[in-house]
């Protein structure tokens, strides 16, 4: 069952360091293929770090591993992902005459794909699947 969230892609230091390590480095790919949720949302959805969710926007969909945001960094209903290939797939190309595609505050539907049984931490596969809407 899909739930609406607002996605904020943004910079992180690890993503920045990853750029220098290289766009194909594990550091960069790992950091940019994880989506963060508020712990309250994680609990409510029965998710633990490493579980996989599917995010769908009007422009694309991706599957990613999840991680709980540190402390209260994220309010409920808001997701965060470090800029990269996966966040770009969810972004539309319409710039509203400004040259800037809407890159933050994206409406997405979140669907749980794999959920670890209670008491077991999930593995942390790198989310790699993404496809434009069919």
């Amino acid at each position: 069952m899909a739930e609406p969230f607002v996605l904020i892609p943004g910079r992180t230091s690890r993503q920045g360091c990853g750029i220098s390590a290289g766009k194909f480095s594990a550091e960069y790919l790992d950091e940019t293929s994880v989506v963060q949720l508020a712990s309250t949302d994680m609990k409510r959805l029965g998710l633990t770090s490493g579980d996989v969710v599917k995010l769908s926007s009007a422009d694309g969909q991706v599957e990613l591993a999840v991680r709980a945001a540190t402390g209260d960094e994220l309010p409920p209903g808001v997701l965060f992902i470090a800029y990269g290939d996966l966040s770009s797939r969810l972004m539309g190309a319409d710039t509203h005459g400004s040259g800037m595609p809407t890159s933050k505050g994206l409406d997405v539907m979140l669907e749980v794909v794999t959920r670890s049984p209670p008491g077991q931490a999930g593995s942390t596969p790198r989310g790699t699947k993404g496809a434009p809407p069919g």
């Binding site: 422009d59 770009s88 797939r89 595609p101």
Partner: peptide, 12 residues
């Protein structure tokens, strides 16, 4: 620059 990473899907 790396537009293949950073632009929207239609652009890429």
């Amino acid at each position: 620059a790396d537009p293949m990473s950073n632009l929207a899907q239609a652009a890429r």
